[in-house]
C-alpha cells in the first residue's frame, strides 16, 4: 500500500477543515472497502486519508416526519440491513443490501460510501436513482442537497467536490400501492452484477400503472434509468404484455459496455429478461400487500 498521511478527525468541523485544506489530495475513509483494495493494488495513491469513522452523529438512521429515511455517512451495510426502519420505509434498499458483496464486506462497508464511490455495477447507486434519493453534501461553511439524477456524473465520479463530504442520503417516502424488486445476475454470488435492475412500480387506485422506475446497474458508465420504458408502462394494465414491451424498449435503448463477463449483446438481452422478472415480482408484492 502506498504511503499517506492519516487523519482521524474527532468532529465534523475538523473533518471539513481537513478536506478544505487538502482538496484533491485527500480521500475520505469510512469503511474503506472500496478504497483500500484500490490502494492495496497501488491503483490509488491519495496523499491524505481522512477517517470519518469517529465523527459523532454520522452513524445514524433517521426517520423523517413524512415517512422518509436518512442514512448517515458511517452506517454500515450490515447495520442498515438489520434496521427495522429500512425494511419498513425503504423496502428497495432492504432488498438490495444483501446483494452487496459478502458479509465481511458489508460489516465494514458503508451505504453512503458505496454511493460516493459510484461504481456503475454496484446495487446502491441504482437504488438511489430509482428512488429519487437526495444527497446531503457538506463542506466548510455550506451544505447542499443534490438529487440522485444529478449526483452520478460518470464512471466512478459524482457531483461531489473534493472538499465536500457526503453527510447522508435521504430516501423519500414510498408511494402507496408500490412494489419493488432488485434483480441481478452476477458470475458468482456476491460479485458485482453483470447487469442488474432496481425497479419500483406504483399503481393507481384503478390498478393501472401510475409510475415506475427502471434503474439499471452494470449497463452503462453510471447507474442509468430507462425513461422510455417507464413512460411506456404508465397507464398500462400491469401484466405480461406491458412488461414484455418494457423489456423490449430496455433491450433496445441500453448500450452497455463489454467485458469478459458479458458482451454488449448479452447485457442488452439480459436487461430485458430482468425487466420482465422484476416488474412481475414488484407487482406480486403489491398484490400481497393488498
Amino acid at each position: 500500500m502506498p504511503a499517506f498521511a492519516y487523519h482521524r478527525p474527532a468532529s465534523l468541523d475538523e473533518a471539513l477543515d481537513l478536506l478544505s485544506r487538502f482538496g484533491e489530495d485527500a480521500k475520505i475513509l469510512a469503511g474503506g472497502q472500496s478504497l483500500l483494495p484500490l490502494m492495496a493494488l497501488r491503483l490509488s495513491h491519495p496523499a491524505n486519508l481522512v477517517d470519518i469513522s469517529r465523527v459523532p452523529g454520522l452513524n445514524e438512521i433517521v426517520e423523517d416526519v413524512e415517512g422518509g429515511l436518512a442514512i448517515g455517512a458511517t452506517v454500515t451495510h450490515t447495520r442498515a440491513e438489520e434496521a427495522e426502519a429500512v425494511h419498513r420505509l425503504t423496502p428497495l434498499v432492504a432488498a438490495a443490501l444483501p446483494l452487496v458483496g459478502h458479509r465481511a464486506i458489508r460489516n465494514r462497508g458503508t451505504v453512503v460510501g458505496s454511493l460516493a464511490h459510484a461504481d456503475p455495477a454496484a446495487e446502491l447507486p441504482a437504488v438511489a436513482l430509482a428512488l429519487g434519493a437526495r444527497f446531503i453534501a457538506v463542506k466548510s461553511g455550506g451544505q447542499r442537497r443534490v438529487a440522485a439524477a444529478d449526483f452520478f456524473s460518470g464512471f466512478l465520479t459524482t457531483d461531489l467536490a473534493p472538499d465536500e463530504l457526503l453527510l447522508a442520503v435521504g430516501f423519500p417516502p414510498q408511494k402507496p400501492r408500490t412494489g419493488v424488486s432488485v434483480k441481478e445476475i452476477s458470475r458468482r454470488s456476491g460479485d458485482f452484477a453483470i447487469v442488474g435492475l432496481a425497479a419500483t412500480v406504483s399503481l393507481d387506485e384503478a390498478g393501472l400503472i401510475a409510475s415506475s422506475a427502471l434503474s439499471f446497474f452494470g449497463a452503462a458508465s453510471t447507474a442509468v434509468r430507462v425513461t422510455e420504458a417507464e413512460e411506456a408502462l404508465a397507464g398500462q394494465s400491469p401484466g405480461p404484455e406491458a412488461f414484455e414491451e418494457a423489456a423490449r424498449i430496455v433491450s433496445q435503448s441500453l448500450d452497455p459496455p463489454e467485458d469478459a463477463n458479458g458482451t454488449t449483446a448479452y447485457r442488452k438481452h439480459v436487461a430485458g429478461v430482468l425487466t420482465r422478472n422484476a416488474l412481475a415480482d414488484a407487482i406480486d408484492q403489491i398484490g400481497f400487500a393488498a
Binding site: 474503506g32 483500500l36 483494495p37 492495496a40 493494488l41 459478502h102 465481511a104 464486506i105 465494514r108
Partner: peptide, 22 residues
C-alpha cells in the same frame, strides 16, 4: 485485496477482512 477471505478476523463481534482495515 479483499476477495478471498483468508485474513478474516473478528472485530467487535463482526467478521471483517483484516487486509482491508488499517
Amino acid at each position: 485485496h479483499g476477495v478471498c477471505g483468508a485474513c478474516t478476523v473478528v472485530l467487535n463481534d463482526e467478521a471483517v477482512r483484516s487486509c482491508l482495515i488499517l
